[in-house]
Computed example of a mutant assay.
Amino acid sequence: MRLFIILSVICVSLFVLVICIFLKSTLTMRVKLLISAHSCSWKVKIYIWGICLWAQQSDPLRQVPSESTANQKHDPGYSQQELADWQEQLGQGIRLLRKMNVSHKIRVQLVSWVTQCGTGDAFETAILSGIIWSIKASLMPWIAPWISDRPRIQVVPVFQRMSLCSDLSCMFQLRIGDAIVMIKKIRRLMKEG
Results as ranks from 00 to 15, higher is better:
R187A: 05
V64Q: 11
Q63F: 03
F15T: 05
Q109T: 05
R62A: 06
S79E: 06
D59N: 11
F123A: 12
V18Q: 03
S25Y: 10
V158N: 01
Q57H: 04
W113N: 03
F159I: 13
I6L: 07
G93I: 00
D149I: 15
M1F: 04
I48S: 15
C20W: 12
C170F: 15
V156T: 14
L83N: 09
W133C: 05
D149V: 11
L7M: 13
G118Q: 02
L90F: 10
I186M: 14
C52A: 13
K136Q: 15
P151D: 07
I127Q: 14
S68H: 00
V156P: 02
G193K: 04
C117F: 03
A137W: 05
A126H: 13
D178Y: 08
S79C: 08
K105E: 04
I35F: 11
R2Q: 06
A144R: 13
S39I: 03
K24R: 13
F22Q: 06
I5H: 03
I183T: 10
T125I: 13
R187S: 09
T28E: 15
G91F: 00
I131G: 12
H74I: 01
S39P: 00
E192F: 02
I35R: 15
R30N: 09
Q109G: 02
K43V: 01
L7K: 08
S103W: 01
L96Q: 00
L27K: 02
P60N: 12
M171L: 10
D59R: 13
V64M: 11
S103H: 04
L34P: 01
M140P: 00
L53A: 12
I132G: 04
M140Q: 14
V12A: 15
P65E: 01
Q72N: 04
L14K: 07
Q72H: 00
K99M: 05
C165L: 14
S112E: 10
L189Y: 09
Q109A: 05
A70W: 00
K191S: 05
I176K: 09
I46Q: 03
R2W: 03
G50K: 08
C52S: 14
V9Q: 09
K45E: 14
C117T: 13
Q160M: 12
I153R: 02
Q87T: 14
K24I: 02
Q160R: 15
L97G: 02
G120Q: 12
L17T: 07
S41Q: 15
S138Y: 08
R152H: 10
R2C: 00
S134D: 10
V111S: 02
L83V: 15
L53D: 12
S134Q: 10
F172C: 10
Q154A: 14
Q154W: 09
C11L: 14
L97S: 03
N71L: 10
Q56V: 04
V158M: 04
L14W: 10
K32S: 11
I21E: 09
D121Q: 11
D167M: 09
T115R: 08
S36Y: 12
L23R: 03
L34R: 15
I153T: 05
D121N: 13
M1V: 06
A179V: 01
W54V: 14
